[in-house]
Design a protein around this nucleic acid. Structure first.
Lengths: 121, 121
DNA sequence: ATCGTTTATCGTATATATACGATAAATAAA
DNA sequence: TTTATTTATCGTATATATACGATAAACGAT
């Protein structure tokens, strides 16, 4: 069982030794929002958070979409960094990158807490 | 000063008498994520949360984009329901719908707290 | 080695997003 | 009333997203 390439361009949100995750810059935050910007992908994330990890085929069963379409949605989620996939035999197993998910959530919290600079557009 | 039509199709997330906002269904949640799925729009939301309300022209000054493009981004934010606009003379004044923003945030919190049903896709 | 299972990718059609300049519409100011 | 200011909308070009069926690729099972 080996880890797949995520294809994501940044790796923001990984916490340092402070215990809390670093806030995401606007571009990274927007990238994750965009990944969550489709009902099917929201359902996928919700399911993965609930069951911890899940193979592609199970997600295909849950959604009213063709296998190829689900695979495409999973690819978008992987590219955002929010989801990670591992190959296990002929199967693909997916799970949420909880560290990044927490960083995302924390960034939202900070939206109303402070008014810092958050990187170039 | 009159309120503009938002163009949004749903009005989810408005709390009942329980004190906490209702969680958003997947479609509504995705709609808001999509609205936040561009760095310029993240910047706009961040700014509006910081200054409470702001006219279009000021946002145009802040972003490295043409006025028409900023207006388009503001329209997308309005259509999501996350931002509301009022016309004041020749100006347009924008602010965040904080109730919906809180509902959005609360929905994210619930992602790891429970495993409820969240409406049809 | 062949076959079945699982999943990614390709090809494709259609729709939506993103950017800009030009222009219209609304109002304040002169 | 004319002019300036402000902002939305139109037109347009290009890019990305979304959906599907078909097919390839990887692997386990026989």
């Amino acid at each position: 069982m080996r880890t797949q390439n995520t294809g994501q361009t940044q790796n923001a949100g990984i916490h340092d030794d402070s215990g809390t995750p670093d806030p995401l810059d606007d571009k990274t935050f927007a990238r994750i929002c965009r990944a969550l910007g489709h009902p099917a992908r929201v359902k996928i994330i919700r399911h993965l958070l609930a069951v911890d990890s899940c193979i592609c085929g199970r997600i295909v069963e849950i959604l009213p979409l063709a296998q190829s379409t689900v695979s495409q949605h999973l690819k978008i989620l992987k590219e955002s960094g929010l989801v990670e996939g591992t190959v296990d035999g002929p199967r693909s197993c997916y799970c949420v990158n909880r560290e990044l998910f927490e960083a995302f959530r924390k960034t939202m919290e900070d939206f109303t807490e402070s008014d810092q600079d958050h990187g170039k557009q």
